[in-house]
Design a protein around this nucleic acid. Structure first.
Lengths: 209, 209
DNA sequence: TGACACATACCAACTGGTTGGTATGGTCTC
DNA sequence: GAGACCATACCAACCAGTTGGTATGTGTCA
């Protein structure tokens, strides 16, 4: 801690800028120079830390996993003893995150995966890794819930966890297309209701118009 | 039919190429020259028919609406008398469309909306118009279904129709990210089950692993 | 302790190629 | 012969990536 560490500041600033700018404009519409000016570094610094733009894309997806991983790990929805309450708490938490501008609450890796799935497979793979890794944090709660309810008809915890991500990613697309965040909350409420019906022990929390 | 009509052939070829190439590479990663060579026309023809690349994006979204509109209007799922069967038939139809490469079965306007929601508002609006217009074709069946079941608790036909599009768009994102179409079918099956539970008259058709 | 070797972090300027878009001219039909 | 349709040639701006270089460490051995 005694020595100054200029190390990591430029790199971190570039990654922070990437999270912000790429969510606004998308991967291909964001130029390297634009990221540099947003991070207040030069192009030389960029290519010192990342060997290519694609390399930054992969690093940004992994950085996104780290950032969001910390956010969700520290969230309060893990507290309840009942797995149903934990799952519902997760959905409430996701709904509560929908605020600010559309670019602020939507998902970096969903955005990048869509643009890069054929042009930049390494980025696509890092994006799916991020989504799948996040889904796994839900899987344990869903598995406990499925077991406690004796649900068997071909429904798996992994499948339900991925379906949850599907709904969230789709909700972000519609929110962007309509330029209206409320549509995302509506779909999360439908997913809540699906879980409530599926595990028919509770009912959806709030009525909504 | 007697007179040759060079009119519309270049324009149509460009729009067909746009549907294909943009779904593969995305809007920003697709260059005008690439569209021209895919359509076997020159740049002069491109800028004769479209005043800018953005103009082509809007036209492509509208062309997509026309093409898919015809496909769904002519589909067999409208036949049943029971609105529940029509809605389930719609989902079966959507599931059956998932074949071939990922770029072939995914949605142009969902892809474009995500990349252009801040950079090209005219394209974004055309994309949402396409999605909303398609959702409306489901709305009547859902309204009839809601009425026949006496469902009241804040669920609207419009909201359900949009949620259906949310699930489909999200399913396409995950299919691209995982590079695996089957994940899309899984989510459609979850949506089927949601409808079945919601209107608790039927059960989901097939068991799935 | 000091000095030399080396690695890391960063910068300004540049390069070859690509981009969306334009200017102009030719050809075909009505 | 007017206008729709399309081709060729071209442009300024922008793109990702490279270059040669500076500054600041950091490890090492006399």
């Amino acid at each position: 801690m005694t020595t100054t560490q200029p190390t990591e500041t430029a790199r971190t600033r570039l990654l922070d800028a990437a999270l912000r700018v790429i969510r606004e404009k998308g991967y291909h519409a964001t130029s390297v120079e634009e990221l540099c000016s947003a991070a207040r570094v030069t192009k030389g610094a960029f290519f010192h830390h990342f060997k290519s733009k694609e390399d930054l894309g992969v690093a940004a997806a992994n950085y996104w996993s780290t950032m969001t991983g910390g956010l969700f790990a520290g969230a309060p929805y893990h507290a309840p003893d009942d797995p149903f309450d934990r799952v519902m708490g997760y959905l409430d938490f996701r709904a509560a995150l929908i605020r600010g501008t559309t670019a602020e609450f939507t998902c970096l890796v969903g955005t990048m995966a869509q643009e890069t799935f054929l042009t930049n497979p390494p980025i696509r793979d890092a994006c799916f890794g991020s989504i799948a890794g996040h889904a796994e944090t839900l899987e344990a709660d869903l598995a406990a819930l499925i077991q406690s309810c004796g649900l068997a008809e071909g429904i798996t915890a992994k499948g339900l966890a991925l379906h949850t991500q599907v709904v969230l990613q789709g909700a972000f697309i519609l929110a962007k297309a309509k330029d209206d965040p409320s549509i995302a909350g509506d779909s999360i409420e439908h997913l809540r209701r699906y879980f409530a019906l599926l595990f028919h022990a509770h009912k959806p929390k709030g009525d909504m118009p």
